[in-house]
């Protein structure tokens, strides 16, 4: 078994999802048969970071044309590496970048990527979700040549043994011609931050009638600030003018789909539920255990929001430190 794990760098470090992908690769081969691959124009630091783990070796795929990322550049470079290394499997973290080039890279080897894998069993048999998570599918590699696999973020908990001795680091310089790179990517930028844009907010703390008075709003604002979340509200709050109308979530306001929707003192009228049902994780804090919001929530705390919210603000602050 020769497994290549392609690691990605985020904010100067190898990303958590890359470590998770490397951990998943342990289901395919022991650590010494796994080669960690870092790729870019300058790979010295991530290579050193990878070498701290007990991989068989670390390969630095380095070329000036590999920054910024382009699918053309990555495909050309990694295809050459694969031809040289002849791996049995190539493992990626399932990121937006991998989704952009890995299918083409696999195609170049006459293969199809098994993407967004959540489980690897003996065989190896790869499990991925179908039908929006309603079913699981078990996949097996059937072709000749390397098997390409990308691993869903969070599906494996990153646990890799540290290197006892120095992990060998090799440098691979691919042959890339500037004319091969057909796309011109611009600098990443933040989406419009000046106006309230609940629709694209990732974290939302939303407040309802349970807050009782406009004077109590800072309590919830503090929690939102601690979470780095946008503050939103149900209709009665905006009707009362306690928060501007553009912060209203629901059928007559905005539809939102954040990763976390924290509903404080919202009982859950249908007009509100239709606006936030697409949220990835819903948390409800309400003193009424029969409040309909608990029907749609993933986590619920039945209690007085005036006690729970400050406690939660403190807990979030502590966790973020």
């Amino acid at each position: 078994m020769r497994v290549l794990v392609i690691l990605e760098e985020r904010g100067g470090h190898i990303s958590r999802t890359s470590w998770e992908a490397a951990t998943a690769a342990l289901r395919l081969a022991p650590m010494q048969e796994i080669t960690a691959v870092v790729i870019g124009a300058q790979t010295e630091l991530p290579a050193a970071e990878a070498a701290a783990k007990a991989f068989g070796k670390v390969i630095r795929v380095e070329h000036p044309l590999l920054a910024p990322y382009t699918s053309d550049g990555y495909c050309a470079a990694l295809h050459q590496l694969i031809q040289q290394e002849g791996p049995t499997q190539v493992v990626f973290p399932h990121t937006y970048q991998v989704r952009d080039y890995a299918p083409a890279l696999a195609c170049r080897s006459g293969q199809a990527l098994i993407g967004d894998v959540i489980e690897i069993a003996d065989g190896p048999v790869f499990t991925r979700q179908l039908m929006q998570g309603r079913l699981n599918g078990s996949y097996r590699h059937a072709g000749n040549g390397p098997c390409f696999v990308s691993v869903q973020a969070g599906a494996f908990r990153a646990e890799l043994p540290d290197a006892a001795a120095a992990t060998p680091i090799e440098t691979f310089t691919p042959a890339i011609d500037a004319a091969q790179i057909r796309t011109r990517p611009g600098e990443p930028f933040r989406g419009s931050a000046q106006t309230v844009d609940l629709g694209s907010a990732q974290w939302i703390v939303s407040v309802g009638r349970g807050i009782r008075e406009a004077e109590n709003l800072p309590l919830v604002q503090e929690l939102a600030t601690a979470l780095g979340a946008e503050l939103a509200a149900s209709r009665p709050i905006c009707d009362n003018g306690w928060l501007p109308m553009e912060r209203q979530v629901g059928s007559s306001g905005q539809s939102v789909a954040p990763r976390l929707y924290l509903a404080v003192g919202i009982s859950g009228a249908i007009q509100h539920l239709v606006g936030m049902k697409g949220s990835q994780c819903i948390v409800a804090i309400n003193k009424d255990p029969d409040a309909p919001i608990f029907e749609v929530a993933d986590y619920g705390i039945v209690g007085d929001l005036f006690e729970v919210v400050p406690a939660l603000t403190e807990a979030v602050k502590a966790a973020k430190q």
Binding site: L135, N136, F294
Partner: peptide, 25 residues
């Protein structure tokens, strides 16, 4: 195919609400 779908199964866990108890803290 280079990749074959061998079987489909129902995922184990279904969505349900977890109520967290105890004091506010």
């Amino acid at each position: 195919p280079a990749v074959a779908l061998e079987a489909i199964t129902l995922p184990k866990k279904q969505k349900s609400t977890q109520i967290l108890n105890g004091s506010a803290e």
